[in-house]
Design a protein around this nucleic acid. Sequence first.
DNA 1: AAAACGGGGGC
DNA 2: GCCCCAGTTTT
Length: 221
Amino acid sequence: MDALVAVYGVRPWNWHTRQPPFHVLVGTILSQRTRDEKTDLAARAVLERFPDPASLAAASLETVEALVRPANFYRTKARRLREAAAILCRRYGGRVPESLEELTALPGVGRKTANCVLVYGFGKAALPVDVHVHRIANRLGLVRTRTPEETERELWEIVPDRHRLLVNELLVKHGQTLCGPRNPRCVECPVNALCSAGSGGLKDEGRAQEARRGRNGRDSL
DNA sequence: AAAACGGGGGC
DNA sequence: GCCCCAGTTTT
């Protein structure tokens, strides 16, 4: 497992479809706006102590907060995790529901997290489109969309179904490494020539400055 | 459509 | 010091 982490960056909470849905749910909530390393620490800590919804729901908030500490938004996430676990016990007999609607009704679970559970937990066909996928797909000119949900639909149309998840993850990796929100490293980019957003980094200066002007602490295209 | 949540690591 | 982080919820 650690070798897989080292080589591919895969994590125990999402590394393939046999991972228990509850683990994926916990790990993915913890991963929101949080780097993989810190997500990993928090997810291992929580799941080792509370491997099922019943034990997590019964835990004290202080205990969960302490375990979730390495992740960002740890107070909010600890509260949501415990509430979600309680709902799983109360309404679903301690199981994780398998529909997008039921999942997004859980606290802390939006469209992206729900799709992660469907894909990595249940092996269903779904596309967890995050900010990276949304940004990169637009920069490359694969889609022209306003929201990640639109990007999700558009990618379904232009990528063959057997390749969608792979393409999705590759776009994430590209966004995490070379093609960040503010300063894309176009000179080093292997798909520079195919990109409609900037060639040779020229158009990037303009867009980077534009993004900087947009100033409210949030990410933008 | 913004703002709040929320804090450490990188440069 | 500013940028970045596999988002979601509330104003």
